[in-house]
Amino acid sequence: MAKQYDVLFRLLLIGDSGVGKTCLLCRFTDNEFHSSHISTIGKLSQGPTGKQETKHASQLSAPGISAGGVDFKMKTIEVDGIKVRIQIWDTAGQERYQTITKQYYRRAQGIFLVYDISSERSYQHIMKWVSDVDEYAPEGVQKILIGNKADEEQKRQVGREQGQQLAKEYGMDFYETSACTNLNIKESFTRLTELVLQAHRKELDGLQTHASNELALAELEEEDGKAEGPANSSKTCWC
């Protein structure tokens, strides 16, 4: 049996605080969307002004562990027949921690740049995040742009085209996702993994031949040659 796991990659989630990086991660790795986040919003939205406050609350978002640190989870997926173990790092989005979180970039092979479609500001900041990546991430790092919270259509501040436009400018792929409705989660993670795989194709080809099957292919070809000699004669008795 061929090797089950061939490669390990590190992917990194970055973007402003509250864009939902942790939720993306949890949805992808555990297929869970933490309802505690929803309930925080729900609770706050019972205020007299109703909707407006809901919006305010969702922008605040309930910070997860990553709010003050760097968290990671493992996930194994298969891309092009290659078993890939990905270690996904979820970083704190707060500005005051950015000098530290930047230092985690250099260990990444792929980076998700995440903004919140209901926050123009988080979209504007993508530029800054990209320049950080250029400065700190290793050369050849693969990037993908994510507009998260696509389910909150009524609060949308950033158009889909704007996301596409920005992604095009930077030569990145683009997905609008929703951790809440599980939209494009698997797709975007798989896509970035594919991109990283492609970028590391050469190293991987080495791995592949290494794990090839035991049966010597040469011997089989030899047999083919023999059979071809006396055409169709294999059905007749050779004695």
Partner: peptide, 16 residues
């Protein structure tokens, strides 16, 4: 200051 509390094989926590 920010302190980084690191867990071996695990997460990093930032303390401000």
């Amino acid at each position: 200051d920010i302190l980084v509390l690191h867990l071996d094989r695990g997460k990093d926590y930032f303390l401000s």
